[in-house]
Design a protein around this nucleic acid. Sequence first.
DNA 1: TTGAAAGCGATACCAC
DNA 2: GTGGTATCGCTTTCAA
Lengths: 334, 334
Amino acid sequence: MNKKVTASDVAEHVGVSRSAVSRAFTEGASISASKRDEILLAAQQLGYQPNFFARTLSTPAQKARSHLVAILISDFSNPFQSYLFETLSTVLQKHGKQPMLLNVKQAEDLDAALMRLSGYQVDGVIAVMGSLPIESVAQCQKLSLPLVTLGRSDPAGQHPSVQTDNRLAGQLAAHYFIEKGFSRVGFVAGRADGQASTERFQGFIDTLYQHGIDDVARLEAGRYGYSAGYQITQKEQSTLRLLQGVFCASDALAFGLMDCCRQDISLTIPNQLSVVGCDNVPQSDWEGYQLTTVAQPVLEIAEQAYRCLEEVWQGKAEVNMLVRIKPTLVQRKS
Amino acid sequence: MNKKVTASDVAEHVGVSRSAVSRAFTEGASISASKRDEILLAAQQLGYQPNFFARTLSTPAQKARSHLVAILISDFSNPFQSYLFETLSTVLQKHGKQPMLLNVKQAEDLDAALMRLSGYQVDGVIAVMGSLPIESVAQCQKLSLPLVTLGRSDPAGQHPSVQTDNRLAGQLAAHYFIEKGFSRVGFVAGRADGQASTERFQGFIDTLYQHGIDDVARLEAGRYGYSAGYQITQKEQSTLRLLQGVFCASDALAFGLMDCCRQDISLTIPNQLSVVGCDNVPQSDWEGYQLTTVAQPVLEIAEQAYRCLEEVWQGKAEVNMLVRIKPTLVQRKS
DNA sequence: TTGAAAGCGATACCAC
DNA sequence: GTGGTATCGCTTTCAA
C-alpha cells in the first residue's frame, strides 16, 4: 500500500512551499495562475488530496466545516423512510456534502452514537421521522450539533423541523372521495400514538363532516407496514365490504390491503373499493398497484431540511423552526 | 452555540495535563484508575469527545484509522441493492465503523468523489454490485483505498470480492422444478450483459439438461426491475401459458410477473405457474407474494465483505481474493 | 504514573 | 505573489 501523499510532497515535487500548495487549493487565494496550474497538475499526478481533517483543524473553529452530514434513520423496512433517506443523501451530495449514516435501531446507545458523530466533526444531523427520541435532542444541543428533524415537531421549539401538513393530506383524501360522491368511507390507522396517522385522520374526518358525512369507519392496523395492512383487511372484511372508499395512513398499509383483497377470491372488494394511500413511495406507481395517494413531496422535504441546516450554519437569527410542506393528491387507477 | 470542548478544557477542569486526558481515553494506557475515572467523569459532564480527525493525524500513519468505511451504491430502486446496503451499514456499525454513503449515480465524477473519500481518510470502500466501473478500480489503488467489491469479480484480481455462487443459484431453482416433476420451464433474464443473470441461467439450464430437459424458454426482460418483469409477462403471455415453472433472474422480476398475472383476469397463469425468484429480498416474504426464491445470504455477504477489509488492514499476505457465498432455496407458497 | 514537548497535515497570518 | 511560522486537537516519545 502506497503511503499517503501530503502537501509537503507536492510542494517538494514542484519546488515551492507548502503554503503555495495550500493556496492552489483555495478558491480566490493570492497565487499566480501558472503556479496554480503547475501545482494542481502535480497533485493530480501524485494522487494528492488535502486531508479534510487537518483542514478542519487549522481553519478557525467558527468557519470550519467538515462537510459531513449525518442522516439518522430508524427503520429501513419502512418504504417511506427508505425513500426519504435516499432522497436526502442525493440532495446532500448535490450540495457537496458527504452523507454519513446512523442506523438508530442498530445503535446500542444513541447518546454515545451521537457523541461519536460529534467526534467526526459532522456539520449537522438530519433525523428522519421518528428516529430521534426527544430525550436525545438535548444531547445534540450539548454537543452543539445542528439538528433538523423530519416529520415530528419539536415541542420545545429548539431546533428546526420539516413536516408535511398531515391534516391537509387527510383533507385531500376526503375531497377525493367526496367528489366521487362516496358517502361510505373508512380510514386505516397506523401506529396508535403516531402523530402522522392521527393528524391525517383528523383532516380526513373534519372535511367529511363538513360535507355531511359523519360516519367514518376506523380500522386500527396498529402499525404502518404492509403486513399490518394485510392483516387488518383479513380481520375487517365485513366492514370493508360495506365501504366505497378507504384512506390508508400510509402507502404500505394500502399495498397490504390491496393484496389481501386480490388474494382472497371471495373478497370481490377491489372492484368496488377505492383505495387511497399516503406518501407516494415509488412502489405506488408500479403497474400492479397504480395507487392513488397523497404525495409527500420528498424532494422538497429534503431540500428544505438542507436549507434549515444552512441557515443554522450561517448563524441566521431567524431560523424557521417549522417548515410546513404541502402534500398533493396523485391520482392513479386505484 | 457552545464552543467545542477540547482535551485542554477537560485537563484544565480536572487540573491535570492534556496527556493525562489522552491517556484516560486510551485503552491500557499508563494511568491510575482514580485519575482516569475522574477525567472520564469530567469529560462526560462537559460533553467532551475526542476529535477523531486530530487523533488520526497524530497517530503514526500506518496504524491510523478513521473507522470510516464508505459504501458505494448505484441504484436504490433495486430492492436487493437497497437491502444489501442496509445490511452492510448494520454490520459496519456492529463492528464499530461509521458508514459513509456514496451514491454513485448521483456523483458527477466518480474519480473526484473517490478522491474526496480519501480526503476523509476512509479506511475502506465497499462497492455494492455494479456500482464501481472497472476503470475506477485503478483510482482506488492510486489513492491506496482498500476496496472490496460485491457481486462482481475483479478480472485483474487486484482486490477482494465477495460473490454469491450464481451458477449454484440456477441449479437450485432447476432442482426445485425437477423435483416437482416439471418439464416445461422457463427463465426470465435480467440485463443482457449482467453477470448475475447470465450465470444463473447457465446453472439453471445445465442442471435441467442433465435431467433430460433441453428445451427452456428464455424471456428477455432486459432489466432486473419490477416493471421489466411486468412488461415481459404481458408481452410473452402465450409463452408463459405453456409453462409449469419459471425462474426469474431477480425477485423484482418475479413480483412484476406475478402482479401481471393477477391483474389480467384472462391470465389464469397464477394457478398453474410456479414462480421462483432470486435474491430473497424482504418483500418476498410479504403475504401477497410468498415467493419461493433462491436466497442470497445478505448478512453473510456483508460479514465477509467486512472480513476482507479487516484482512487488508491487518496486512495479511494471503488475502482471499474471491469469497464465494452459497445461496439456498427458500420455499414459500408460490 | 506523570507532565513537557515534538510532531501529524493543513491553513492563516505575517512579513517580505 | 511568495515563503516562513504559529496554530488547530490530539497522541506519543522522553524525562522526571
